[in-house]
Nucleic acid binder design. Structure first.
Lengths: 209, 209
DNA sequence: ATATAATGTGACTGGTCAGTCATATGACTG
DNA sequence: CAGTCATATGACTGACCAGTCACATTATAT
């Protein structure tokens, strides 16, 4: 929720600002991220930021929204499997799409990781909402798969959801540490897909019927 | 590495100080944690802290060490299964012991979570070391289990290690969110053990031969 | 060209911070 | 008692911070 002033700005200026502000909040804890540093790097006056946004929190929440949008957009544009596909095919697609998105937009991904993992003092409804939606998404997916007999019947939906989410959370950093900094071809490399396959296989054996 | 001044202090004073300093660094990001706030709450002069420690970083690293020590001590005192026990029995023990320890020492656990998850600017050798030791521990455990035919032969050791560690990392917060704040009997409750069982079963099916 | 509105500016305020240092207090020694 | 050493103190320094505001600049409309 920036002020109209910011949205009226020519795209160029908006983007130039975002290109400085996003990494600042991606690389630093909310409290340590500095508006002063942003304006210095962006070459604008401090007062301008407060023409654009209410305050630091407002700016931060907008950056989260922008990041979310850009990730979602990317994920949506990667072709999904047929809706009739089985649970693990869906999961593999989701895994791959998520990883690809965070490779394509590493700064946005980093910012989101930070925003969702570190509970800020202002537990704004936005975060809680996004978290709940995510949780519900996975639980619904699992429940449905279970109902159609793809998963072990005794499986606790919450436990399964937490395991799947934990996996997705850790996967990015793991791949990075294993295969080094991302390059353009990175996500196409067969070793990366081999890891996807392995993880899916493990989950399939573990959660499947 | 506190200065001798701190170690010469009567235990009472040391503990009183730690009881204020630990939560400050457990509840706040390193940059946001405040020495000024600590001295105010502890009712001592700011200069004293700098008689005890070189600087903020020195203090923090000592707190990490103290927390590590206290967790390790607790884990060590819970009776381990026979060394001949199979991989998943060992893993279950480790899971339970880790959770119990972080219930018994929630502040220490919180501080450690923070210290290891947020890469500080000063990548001090201590952290890197501790991380490496942890990684090697799990990889060795898995490798051995694989060699003795308990795990799937095609299993990638690194992938397995990352999954197991991811699980352990997420388990604490998950249990907390599911069963509420910890109480004394908490870790004995059958629901909690049911979750352990389920997680182990999933891993066993997923990773096992 | 003039008036009006939108946008940009940066010095300034009040606050917090880590870390210092001259000074004080106490404790132990001979 | 005097002398010495370890410990305690808190005002102070310089730096950084978020946020403000009176003023300057630019764009738009008349």
């Amino acid at each position: 929720m920036p002020k109209p002033t910011f949205l009226n700005l020519p795209r160029e200026k908006q983007n130039a600002f975002l290109e400085v502000a996003l990494p600042e909040f991606a690389d630093n804890d909310y409290n340590s991220a500095s508006v002063s540093r942003i304006v210095e790097r962006a070459g604008i006056a401090k007062g301008s930021v407060y023409q654009y946004f209410e305050d630091k929190q407002d700016l931060f929440m907008y950056l989260v929204e922008v990041s979310n949008q850009s990730m979602l957009e990317f994920v949506k544009q990667t072709p999904p499997p047929a809706p009739s596909a089985d649970f693990f095919t869906m999961l593999r697609w989701q895994m791959s799409a998520t990883i690809q998105a965070s490779l394509k937009h590493p700064v946005h991904a980093k910012l989101l990781r930070r925003a969702y993992s570190a509970p800020l003092p202002f537990q704004d409804a936005i975060f809680e909402n996004a978290r709940r939606i995510r949780e519900e998404h996975f639980q619904a997916m699992i429940q449905q798969a279970q109902a159609s007999g793809q998963l072990a019947p005794g499986l606790d939906v919450q436990v399964a959801s937490f395991m799947v989410q934990g996996m997705l959370n850790e996967l990015g950093p793991f791949l990075q540490s294993r295969f080094g900094e991302q390059t353009d071809d990175w996500a196409q490399r067969p070793e990366v897909h081999a890891v996807f396959d392995q993880v899916i296989t493990i989950l399939k054996n573990g959660l499947g019927k």
